[in-house]
Every structure is written in structure tokens, then in C-alpha cells.
Design a binder for these strands. Sequence first.
DNA 1: AAGCTTTGACTTTTT
DNA 2: GTCAAAGCTT
Length: 750
Amino acid sequence: MNLDDLNNAQRKAVTTDNSHSLVLAGAGSGKTKVLSSRIAWLINTGQASFNEVLAVTFTNKAAREMVSRISMMLDRDMKGFWIGTFHGLCHKMLRLNWREANLIQNFQIIDMSDQLSLIKRLMKSANVNESKYSARDLQKIINSYKEKGLRSNEIDVYDSYNKYIAEFYHLYEHQCIRDGLLDFAELLLKSYDLLKNNQTIRNYYQERFKYILVDEFQDTNSLQYGWLRLLIGNSTSVFAVGDDDQSIYAFRGANIDNMSLFDKEYAKGNIVRLEQNYRSMGHILGAANSLIRYNNGRLGKKLWTQEGDGEKVLIVEKHNDLLESQWIVDEIKNIVKNGIKQDDIAVLYRSNAQSRVLEHALFLSGISYKVYGGLRFFERQEIKNVLAYLRLIVNRNDDSAWLRSVNFPIRGIGTRTIESLFEITKNKNISLYDAVAYHSGRSKNNLLMFNNIISTLEESSRKLTLVQLIEHVLEFTGINAFYKNEEETDRLDNLKELVTAATIFSGENNFSEIPASLLIDDLKENLDVSLNNNIYLEQEKITPLLSFLSHASLEAGDNQSESEQSSVQLMTVHAAKGLEFKVVFITGVEEGLFPHENSMSDNSSIEEERRLMYVAITRARKKLYITMANSRMLRGQVRYSVKSRFISEVGEGNVIFVKNKEQILPNNYLKSNSRFTSNSHQQSNKLSSGNTNFVDINGKKFVIGQNVKHKKFGDGTIIKLIGHGEESQAQISFNNCGIKTIMLGIARFE
DNA sequence: AAGCTTTGACTTTTT
DNA sequence: GTCAAAGCTT
């Protein structure tokens, strides 16, 4: 490995001998390079061996990227190297110490949709229909408690609602334990509890991991920080890398304060700033720097480049969303004509709903595009159906899996039957599988047949490899036959893809010849290691099947197969984090959309929106466009809005404004009679003559930008108008009391 | 138990 | 406007 291709700041970070350090790594400043080089350097100089290093990331992709970089720098066996996501590493720790963690050996991981259906099921059985909370609410509440490290018995019960939540949370905990299921947050919490409560294990890991490296530190939540704390012993050195300006995940528990907390508790001023940017041209960086200065309480950082100013950022204002999309499409055509590949172009938006208009315009123009987001491979219905059978093979008491499989394919087992089984499970505190024995009724035979399928499959699994088992399940359960009969070729293809995925997985993990459900005790003979044994022997002592199921939950896969042709990339700003493109369009940059209206009430949310805009801007390498529309269709209503405050924050010197010059177009402009997706889609033609940004109500006119004086709220400016006629509303930014949405028909103005 | 109609939510999301 | 899920009908 070679330290010469690092700049001074990078080299300083890589070779620091401070016990703890915090690296503030700006966008495009070579963060992954520094992390990988640091690990390679520690190994190369003999300061550490791989089994003494723990590296933690947020995504599997980031972990893979780091492994591949390190292997390019060093030709060494990485055995014993713990690298992965927080969840992946916690999972590993729990598999190795399942007894001490009070788990069953076959515990399974459930994803968010499994968790949601479990919660719905429990709500029904607990008769809480008229509760104030929806299943989604409860899911959010439970997860956020877990992310704060709180169990159901640790919640402060100060009123009846909290009491209800604590009770329901307890019910959910109980069911998860009985089914042997761990949700994502629970992986972290269980691992945290294990380290906290078991001194032997805590000491072992503290002594073992001399070097801990953390990526994307600004995205850690309180529990993750707590978990890291428990791993830090007297001789541990922590290297935390992050960028407070790119913290955009507060809504899922990320705590930006963890960075300054880490500085206070550990790094103690050992901060390295990576500010030289290798990605974007000067004006783009200028815009980013200018914008982010409007945030308070930053750790502070200013990006610079050696590459020159480049082109100015183009800011484009259009009358409406259709014209905005059309303009982008025309511009893309020009760019492509000038030799830029479509792969190098990204169109970003704040929320997924915005992709529709863009897709439409792209489709009509024949430009190929790819939309990121949506269902991932292992989240697909047909895949989950197969996984449910596999879960039952591992643990027949997994009620969630049993319910999913029992009537798929159809076996004549309906809701009535299931309800009566639920009664039995409640009374006897047993699983649905076991409850069948006590059931009497017309469906009894069907139920017995189903349970028989499960036990027969379990038998077979002892003799088959993982791939053979999956192929067997597809045939034996009738899943293949069902989809063939329905002529669902896409789903059949995905099932084939599942077999391929299992083949690849088996190969990568070197157990293609081991039967999928070999008794775990037999496997342990060969692979077991106790804490005192030689760590190089350490392997996950789980069967291929269990391992594959964990893999499926922890890594949901891609959402789309690779397309052969070069295509324009469409995604949310969140999804674009960590990526870069030659040309970037940031679209819909309007008050209410970006910043989003739900984030406009308090300053910390606005600051997060601003960081999101900062992330969006710093994705661009050569050319950046920021576009906005005066009106757009949203939730079936025309909404008028003004340009986002962020547009005025990017600094006049870095930008060129292109004002709307066109006349409002006649009705038939963009009129579409072609179909744009397989399910035919009628584009509504809303470009009527009323399409301006004013509203007329009871003879009074209201225009965006107009100053008004409200009887109660005082002076303010209209920033957005929604809807027509009696129903129309205005969003008004009041000088003294923030932004309020007001019904114009009712409001009293002076 | 399948097929139809109505209702309600709707920012961002990885594990 | 769109989608999924719940509710109702056959």
C-alpha cells in the first residue's frame, strides 16, 4: 500500500496515533479511501491483525466497497475481520452467543413488513380496534422506544395512552419471544443488553477489538452509540468518520449530536477535517458552501477544489410541473447530443410522488430511464411466500410464517378456521402449528395436511443442500404450479432468481455441500469455538438454511435488475446520498416541497431539509440544474408555490437564473393519447386558463407574494395557494408566528 | 373464499 | 390522483 496518493489531511487521518479521533469528511473528500487506507495501514505496519479490527457501516454496499478497497491495497487473508453493518455485526454476535443472550438457537430476523403484519395481528387478537393508534403508529412507537434502549417495562406510564402502549409493546415482545423472532431494532437492543449484562463477553470483545472504525457517524442513533460505548475498553482506539452537514436521517432516529458527544467523550479535540473535494467543480461547491452556512451549530467545514470554477449552476423556473419535466427532457436530449452518457445524468426529487410526471415526459421522448426505490428482491410477495416455508422448516412455531403459508397456495383454510385456532393458541399459550391438534371442525383435515407438509419438508431438509431444498419446496408446496397456472411469468422468473441467489450464496459461503438443515449440534462439532478458543477458527455456527434466511432479511437485495442500456437515473435525494453524477437535476425546489411542508414548522427540521439540499447539490460533478414550477398537481389538487428559500441561499455568484419566458400554453399542449406504462394511464389535461398563481374569492384577489394583515396573526406574506373557489387555502408566512395554512373563505383579513 | 366496492392515507428509508 | 387495504357481496 502507498500513502503517497493521499493528501495531507487524509494522510494525517490515516496514520494518526491518537487513541480516538473524529474525521469530518466532506462530500467527495475521499472518505472511503481514508477508512480503507487506515485499516490497511494498521495491518501493514503490524499494529493490528484483522481479528483485532471492527469496522461498522450503515449499508451492506458500503461494507462491500470497503472490503474491496482493502483487498486491492493488501494481499492478505481477512479472516477474523469483523466488518459489516450495525445490524449484521449485532446479528453475528448474537448467533455466537445465543445462549448468553437468552435466545433460541434458531432465532429469525423479521423485516419491517413482517413486523407490521405481526402488529396488525396482535391488535386484532387484543381487540384494540378503537385504539387511537394505527398499526403503523404502534410500529413507529415501539421501534423508537427500542432505539432509545427501552423495553416495555421501562416506559414511563404517566397516562392511559402510555399505559396502553406499554401493554401492547409487552404483548408484542411476548409474541416475538414465543415465535423466536427479532426485528431490526431488537438485533441492536439484544446485542446491547448482552454486552451490558455479561461482563465476560464484554471484556472479551473489548480486549479483542483494539481498533474500531465507524462510517457515517452522523447517522448513528442513541442505541448504536451506546453499543459502541460498551465495546470501547481501555486499550480500544476508535476512528469515527462522518459529516454533520450530511445528516439526513433524523426521522429514523439518527442523532446528529452523537458527533459532538463523541468528540467530548472520546476524541477530545482530535479532529481531522477532509475539505479538499475531488468531485465537483467550483461553482457547485460554492453553492453548497453558501447554502450550508445558513445552518447553526455546525462542526464547521468548507469544501474547496483545485479543479477550477466550471459552469455556473442553472436555476430554471417554469409555470408548472409538466413544463418543468418537459424542459428537463429537452435539456437531457441536448446534453446527450453533446456526448454525455445517460448513465451520467441523475434527476433528483424530494418525494417519490414527483417521479410520475418526470417518467411520463421521459417515456414520451423515448429516453430510457431507471427509477430507484420500490420493492427489493427479497421483499417481493412470491419470494416471501417461499421464505415463509423455509422459516417453518427451521422453526415450526413461527406463527407469522405459518400464517403466511397455511393458505398459500390455496388449501381451503379460511378466516373462520384461523380465528378458532387463535383462540386455542391464546388459551393454551402454544403455537398455531401445535394448536391444530386441538382444533375440531370441517377444515381439520386440511390443517393436518398442511402441518404434514411442514414436517415432511423438515425431514427432507436434513438430506438436501440449500439449493436442492429450495427447488424441492417450490415443487412440493405447489408454489411453482400455482404461479404457472396463473401465468405469472414475472413471479416465476423471480422464483428462478431465488434459486440462483441461493446458489451464489452457497458458493460464497463454502457450504454448498452441507445439507440445509444439518442438525446444529453436528455442525457445532466442526465449527464451534468457545470464547477461549483460537479466534481464527471462529465461524458462524449456523446451518446454511438459517444463514440464508438471515441474509435475506439483512440484505434485501436490489430493487431492479441491471439494465443493459444506458439510462437516466431517477431517485429521491435520500437515495442519492453517497452517489455522484456528471450532471444532476434537482427538481421541484419549491417552498412546501423542498423544504417539505411537514418540515417547515421548526428550525431543526428546516436545517435537516437544508442538509438534504446540500447532499443533493454535492452529488453533481460538472453540471447542476435546480428547477422549480409555479404550480403542480399534488394529491389531485393544483398547488401553487413560490421558489424555495434554498434557491436564494446558494449565492448569486454561483448561479444563473433562467426565468419563465413562455406564454401559458394552450390546452392541447403535451396532450397525450399514448400509453406510458403497461397499465394504461390517462394523463389529465389540467392546463386550463385558470392556471396562474392567484385566487379569486368573494371578489377578493390573492396572489403569491402578496402581503396581508390577518386579524389574529398579524402581518404576513402569501407563499402558497392551494385549490380553487370556496375551498381554496393559502399558506402564509407570518412575521411573528411562522407559517400557517388558512382557509381563504373564512379567514379575516384587515 | 374469491371478487367487487369503498375508504383512507399520502416525506424521506436501511437494516 | 393513486394505491393498498378493509369491508361487503356473492
